[in-house]
Design a protein around this nucleic acid. Structure first.
Lengths: 254, 254
DNA sequence: ACAAAAGTGTTTGCCTTACACCCATGC
DNA sequence: GCATGGGTGTAAGGCAAACACTTTTGT
C-alpha cells in the first residue's frame, strides 16, 4: 500500500475512533551534551519537522492519550508528563500550506472540522533511556537543541516556547531533573541542567549548597572517572523525597 | 415557546455553529464580605447549581469565547481571564443523571459526541462592578463562598478546586487584586483578600511593609470613614507597575 | 608540569518573621 | 468612656549572593 493510501486509511480510522477536532501535541524534553533538547520528527517523504502528537480515542481520557502517544514515540512509560496549555486560536496555522507540505488527502472527504484545538503536554525524559521509534507517518526523529529549532510545522514553535516558559516557572517551586538525568549524575551535570533551563549562569558553590540543603539528592561514594581532572562525586535523587516535593510544590529555588 | 423547545433550538444552533465536543467553563472569583466568592447559576426550572459556561463558535478562538461568555454573564470586558486547565477525563460526570436533572432533550437527536472536553478559565472580577444577567437557561445567579459550595452539576466542584489551587500558586509570583478589589481599597481589605486566597492569617505589620515595598500600590491622602474606629487610609494599584509585575511574573510573595 | 574541571567555606546584607501598644472614631 | 478596628517599629535569625583558591586527574 502506498503512503497516500495509508494516510487515507489512517484518517478514516481517526475520524471513526477519535474525538473530532481535538489533538494532542507533546514537547518531549531531554538533556544531552549540556543542552536542553526537544524530540522532533520528520514527516514521511518531506523535509518538514514537527512535534510528536496524535488524537484522543473516544473512550480515553486526554491524559491517557498523551501517555500513549509518548509511549509510542519513546518506548517509555511512567514519565513525568504534564498538561501545560490548550491551543485554540481560530487560525493556528495555514491549513492549505500544511496539507500541501504533508501530501495530505483531500480534506473534503473527512468528517474532521476545519479547525483543530490542541492540548499541549510536556514530558521530561532521560535521553539515554529513550529509544524513539518512527511510525508510518515519520521518516526520522531527531533531538534538537531547544534554542535552535528550525521552523516547525503547524504552530509547533509556539508550543515549544510556551512549554519552555512553563518549565522555567515550575523550576522555581518544584524539583526538576528526575526524569531528565540518568540515575546517577554529578553535581556539575545537575547545575548545567538548571542553567540550561533557566538560561543563566549559577554559582557552583551556592548551587551545591542549595541543592544538598533541599534534601532530595544523596551523594554516593562512587566517583566518575574519565577526564583529565578531579573525579566528580556521583549523586542520585531520593525518589521518595523528590516525589513528595513534586506533589507539595514546596520547594523554593530562586 | 416553552423551555423545552427553546432548549432544543439552542442545542440545534450549538450543533450547527459551534465546535463539537468542546466547552468552556468559567470560574468567576469575586471578593466580598471578606470572603472569596464564586459566581454560580441555577439552571432553569431546577434546584441545580453550576458554573457559567458555553461553547466555542467555529470561527472563534477559545480565549475569545471565554471572554464572550464572561461578558454575557457579568457585563464586564477586559477582565483578568486565564486559561488554567483542560478537563478531558473519559467520564467527567454521569451524563444520564445530568440530562435528567436539567430536562435536556433526547441526546440521540444531536450531533454532539457522547463526551465533552472542557477548557477551564478563571476570572477575577470586582464584585461591585458586576451586574450578572441570566439567560434563557438560567433562573438565578448567586455569589457563593468558595469554601462552602453545594454539590454543583457536572464536575464543577472539581473545576473550582483546580482553579483555586492555581490562583494560590500564582499569588506567590504574580500580583493579585487589581480586578478583585474596587479601585480604592484599604490595606486591611487587601490583607483579607490575601488571607482568604492563601487560607492562612497574615501579620498586619509585615503585610503592610511587604505590600508597600513591592511598589505596586500607592497610598492616597483620603481616608475612609464610617466605622467606630480609626479611619483607614485608601490605596490604589499603580496600573503600570501592576501590569509590568503581572507580565514579568517577577513578584515574590511568600 | 600543566591543563582542565571539581570541590569547598565565609562574609555580607537583605528579607522574613515575631511581637505589642497606641490611635482615631462612632456610639 | 468604651468598644472596635487601624496603624506602626524593632530586633533576631535565616536565606541568598558574592567571592577565589586548592585538589585531582590525564596527558
Amino acid at each position: 500500500m502506498d503512503y497516500k493510501k495509508q494516510l487515507e486509511a489512517y484518517f478514516a480510522e481517526v475520524d471513526e475512533k477519535c474525538l473530532l477536532g481535538l489533538s494532542i501535541d507533546c514537547v518531549i524534553f531531554g538533556f544531552s551534551n549540556n543542552q536542553l533538547k526537544v524530540l522532533v520528527l520528520r514527516w514521511k517523504l518531506t523535509n518538514e519537522w514537527g512535534l510528536p502528537g496524535g488524537f484522543v480515542y473516544k473512550n480515553e481520557s486526554v491524559d491517557v492519550a498523551a501517555q500513549r502517544i509518548l509511549k509510542e514515540r519513546t518506548g517509555l512509560s511512567e514519565l513525568f508528563l504534564q498538561q501545560f496549555h490548550t491551543f485554540g486560536e481560530e487560525v493556528r496555522y495555514n491549513r492549505a500550506e500544511i496539507s500541501q507540505k504533508l501530501n495530505w488527502p483531500d480534506p473534503s472527504t473527512r468528517k474532521w472540522p476545519n479547525r483543530t484545538v490542541s492540548i499541549g503536554y510536556f514530558a521530561l525524559v532521560d535521553f539515554l533511556k529513550v529509544t524513539p521509534s518512527v511510525d508510518f507517518q515519520t521518516d526520522e526523529y531527531r533531538w534538537m537543541d531547544v534554542e535552535n529549532l528550525p521552523p516547525l510545522l503547524f504552530d509547533h514553535n509556539h508550543i515549544v516556547e510556551v512549554a519552555l516558559k512553563t518549565l522555567q516557572v515550575q523550576l522555581s517551586w518544584q524539583p526538576v531533573g528526575y526524569n531528565l538525568l540518568p540515575e546517577k549524575f554529578t553535581m556539575p551535570e545537575l547545575q548545567r541542567l538548571y542553567e540550561t533551563i533557566l538560561n543563566r549562569p549559577l554559582d557552583p558553590r551556592n548551587f551545591s549548597k542549595k541543592m544538598r540543603a533541599l534534601g532530595i539528592i544523596e551523594r554516593l561514594e562512587e566517583q566518575r572517572r574519565g577526564g583529565a581532572f578531579k573525579s566528580p562525586y556521583l549523586f542520585r535523587f531520593n525518589k521518595e523525597k523528590y516525589k513528595k516535593a513534586l506533589k507539595e510544590g514546596s520547594l523554593a529555588f530562586t
